[in-house]
């Protein structure tokens, strides 16, 4: 990874010198080596630039604000394969000014979830370095080596595609790791098998952990409204949702409906959730339903109509088998 990061830096320098870009949206090193965060590098200053096993954050959403002003010149954005899906959605929905962006597709071998490492009992990490698939963890209590593959982010465990969408250039992308063999609908299927009341209990117990920090909404490339209905007093939605203790539940259910048919399954909502609510499962259930009802090919299934579309009664029919 360090080698890739260096090469990317060289590439950035080249693009900057050629006048193709004025800024870079990338990841900046944190204090401990596992807390890199999105950052805009300006004036060719790439100090603390990193691209490591902890660069899981999808940068595409920042492009809404960063591409707005024509006067700022082009911004380079670094995108992993799954990041490009959200990027493409933002482009399709006219939420970014594509002409002000230079999208560079970069390789990804899966990103690591530091929480998983910490949970395994490793404490006091001070520094992390990588050697192929091995993470060398320097801690206050000594050094430890772990295999990166054992601590991947949930979203990487179900990595379904290494396809890059809507990029201006692909850089070293042949170094991408393999997709996961794990079926991303397996967890959804498990939930589908529950009875209505079990499902209700499951989601109730998950969603009641929500602290309404709005991280899921803010990171979601499909949640890109100028004004969210929950922030719009005039819409009355927020007032309705908080009529009782069901508020958090309704927030997530309404959000799932709003992104239904548009969600690209990037898994960011669950990654950023500080309460570890598996929010992506709500969205993935919709994706599964849409695939089953309208097929794989129909990209805007809920917005288009064809004479072959399922009749609405299908919902009732399916519901009958699953009381």
């Amino acid at each position: 990874m360090q080698m890739i990061a260096e090469k990317i830096k060289e590439k950035i320098k080249e693009l900057t010198e050629n006048g193709k870009i004025s800024r870079v949206m990338g990841w900046k090193k944190g204090l401990y080596g596992y807390d890199s965060e999105p950052f805009v590098f300006e004036n060719g200053d790439l100090r603390d630039f990193t691209y490591d096993a902890f660069s899981g954050a999808n940068l595409c959403k920042y492009m809404i604000a960063q591409s707005k002003n024509d006067g700022d010149g082009k911004i380079l954005v670094l995108l992993k394969p799954c990041d490009t899906w959200g990027f493409e959605l933002l482009d399709k929905e006219h939420r970014i000014k594509r002409e002000n962006i230079y999208a560079l597709g970069i390789p990804c071998g899966g990103m690591v979830d530091i929480e998983k490492i910490k949970k395994s009992g490793v404490k006091g990490i001070t520094e992390i370095s990588e050697k192929e698939d091995t993470l060398i963890l320097k801690t206050m209590y000594g050094e430890k080596e772990v295999n990166k593959k054992d601590y991947l982010l949930d979203k990487c465990l179900v990595c379904s595609s290494k396809e890059y969408k809507d990029c201006d250039e692909l850089f070293m992308t042949d170094l991408c790791g393999d997709t996961a063999e794990y079926d991303r609908f397996e967890e959804v299927e498990k939930l589908e098998k529950l009875s209505s009341s079990e499902k209700f209990e499951f989601w109730r117990s998950q969603l009641e952990k929500c602290i309404r920090c709005n991280a899921c909404r803010n990171v979601c490339p499909a949640c890109s409204c100028v004004k969210c209905v929950f922030d719009n007093d005039n819409s009355g939605v927020a007032a309705k949702a908080n009529a009782n203790d069901f508020e958090e539940n309704l927030f997530h259910i309404i959000r799932a409906f709003h992104v239904c048919g548009r969600c690209v399954d990037c898994g960011e909502c669950s990654r950023v959730c500080p309460q570890n609510i598996p929010l992506h499962l709500l969205n993935r259930k919709y994706i599964k339903d849409i695939k089953e009802l309208y097929g794989d090919e129909d990209e805007a299934a809920l917005l288009t109509f064809t004479t072959e579309d399922k009749e609405p009664s299908v919902v009732y029919e399916r519901g009958k088998n699953n009381v």
Partner: peptide
């Protein structure tokens, strides 16, 4: 127009 994000969903769905 104050709230519209210009996402084109309405255009796509309009019969």
């Amino acid at each position: 127009s104050l709230i519209c994000s210009g996402c084109s969903n309405c255009e796509k769905v309009c019969p």
